[in-house]
Design a protein around this nucleic acid. Sequence first.
DNA 1: CTTGATCCTGTAGTAACTACAGGATGCATA
DNA 2: TATGCATCCTGTAGTTACTACAGGATCAAG
Lengths: 129, 129
Amino acid sequence: MNSIGVASERSGVGIEAIRYYEREGVVPAADRQANGRRVYDDAAITRLRFVRRCRGLGFSINQVKTLLSLSLSRKENCEDVSRIGHKHLDEVRQKIIDLQMLEGALVELLTNCEGGEARCPLLVRLFED
Amino acid sequence: MNSIGVASERSGVGIEAIRYYEREGVVPAADRQANGRRVYDDAAITRLRFVRRCRGLGFSINQVKTLLSLSLSRKENCEDVSRIGHKHLDEVRQKIIDLQMLEGALVELLTNCEGGEARCPLLVRLFED
DNA sequence: CTTGATCCTGTAGTAACTACAGGATGCATA
DNA sequence: TATGCATCCTGTAGTTACTACAGGATCAAG
């Protein structure tokens, strides 16, 4: 079992952010030792890492909550899971497309740049109509 | 030339966010008509769209500023552009990897779910050590 | 038994918007 | 030409998602 400091280090989520996620119900409240200190097992740390990754990919806290709840749903609300899951899948795929365009543009920029060319492709051109 | 309302609609950036980006120097101040109203050309709208996409991909306002400035740099600071560009390229590629993992997990979740299986793969397992 | 690191709660500050309020201006329509 | 409704302006206040203390308890090494 890990202290909040170790959980922070291993998940990449700041200590204060971990406590914030607990307050906001993004993750379940951590168990406490007799002295009142929080303890985290590997699953809890993985969950924190999941939250961090999702936030870094531009999902809101509410979306992360939804994603976390998706796999906890039971058979009964499978239709809901399907509908919500597909919506998020669409969004994930659009983000991948956007990132791949950005990747391509950055590669071109760096190739030109390192080839000694003064003219750089404008990144903003990326998202023309 | 477009009004701020049209620019908002075409870029997907809210009117108040557009004015906020101007105040913060994320985008250059828009030209004004004689009556004081802002006007936006296609390039300005594309730039706003670029900001929105990047923000949606989890980049901070400062990172977006940096990305916008990358292609405006001159030959002299090509080394800087290269260094900064590579750092961002790494981050873009990591985000793509994360999103592809999330995509795969969502597809699996939905396949099981729609196949009538009660057991759903845990999305949080995604980011185990 | 001290001392420095780590934890606790609680509050205040910051980043990036978002939502008014109050007033001017534009533009279609009677 | 009048009117009325949409859109714009500036400015301030509120929200989300943290981040940074303050002040105090607790742990663990020496």
